[in-house]
């Protein structure tokens, strides 16, 4: 892969994601104040001791933003990894086994997708106790339906290619066929899909937190911070917009990278892709 072939927009996206991840990892080092420390008056304007001002309880907004990156990225990433693994395993199983298994999985998936994700999440979260792992699990299961659909389509697309048939005629086992013949050729679209799911997870988690059903206070997370500070808006206090902008920026960065990956994918059949 040629570094120079990566367009500027993708570089911006990669840089943005890298900054967010660095914040998440080194939060205690970077953040000027503690996550839950009340350090000043409420809703102080930006500047002075507090670079971005303070929030509705007088906590430093910048510090909470940095710690929030940690929670938001961790939960969204965990949900995405889980949903992706689940969706990929089930979809490849459906594509490889075919027949009854495929029908069963696919029809059940159709049923799951007949209910809008947010509504489904609201119904389920109304019943389940509030735990972080439950939140991650619910997000992952709901999102895996989308992964299943695309994974199955991609796997079937490649599975009917003649080089896969040639491998079967050679007598290769299923594992070789999946890992050496199919997977390398689906990597690009699946990577793009992973990015897309990650961006969606960030937005979805933020939405749930904003509605008060995601991450519970006092832990900092971007969606929850918007909820905490939303009452300030009416007084012209922009504290709620800061975490909102953080969510939007991260999602945009991820989408910029995804956009580039997708364009690369579309040249898969003609061009050589990477190498």
């Amino acid at each position: 892969m040629n570094l120079r072939s990566i367009p500027l927009s993708a570089w911006i996206g990669i840089a943005g994601i890298a900054i967010a991840i660095l914040c998440a990892i080194f939060a205690p080092v970077i953040a000027p104040y503690g996550e839950r420390d009340v350090v000043g008056e409420i809703w102080l304007p930006a500047g002075g001791d507090f670079l971005l001002g303070t929030d509705n309880l007088g906590r430093d907004l910048l510090s909470r933003l940095i710690y929030g990156a940690r929670t938001t990225i961790f939960v969204a990433l965990a949900a995405t990894v889980l949903s992706f693994s689940l969706g990929m395993i089930l979809s490849f199983a459906a594509a490889v086994m075919g027949g009854f298994v495929d029908q069963l999985f696919s029809r059940f998936n159709d049923l799951m997708m007949a209910i809008p994700t947010l509504i489904f999440a609201l119904v389920v979260l109304a019943v389940l106790p509030q735990h972080l792992w439950i939140l991650i699990l619910v997000m992952a299961v709901l999102d895996s339906t989308r992964v299943f659909r695309i994974g199955r389509a991609v796997a079937l697309d490649v599975a009917v290619m003649e080089f896969v048939e040639a491998a079967r005629l050679r007598g290769e086992g299923s594992l070789w066929i999946i890992f050496r013949e199919i997977l390398p050729n689906t990597l690009s679209p699946l990577l793009a899909e992973f990015g897309l799911r990650f961006a969606f997870s960030i937005l979805f988690l933020s939405t749930l937190s904003f509605l008060g059903l995601g991450i519970q206070p006092p832990a900092a997370d971007w969606g929850g911070m918007v909820k905490d500070n939303k009452d300030g808006i009416i007084f012209g206090i922009s504290a709620a917009l800061v975490p909102g902008a953080a969510i939007a920026t991260l999602a945009i960065c991820v989408n910029l990278v995804v956009d580039w990956l997708m364009k690369r994918t579309s040249s898969l059949k003609g061009g050589r892709g990477d190498a």
Binding site: M161, E162, F163, L169, G171, N185, G273, A275
Partner: peptide, 18 residues
Amino acid sequence: LRRIQMIYQMADTAMNPR
């Protein structure tokens, strides 16, 4: 399987591009 091999019409799709 070894004793019978196959050549396809479209060499493009018959070989793994990776």
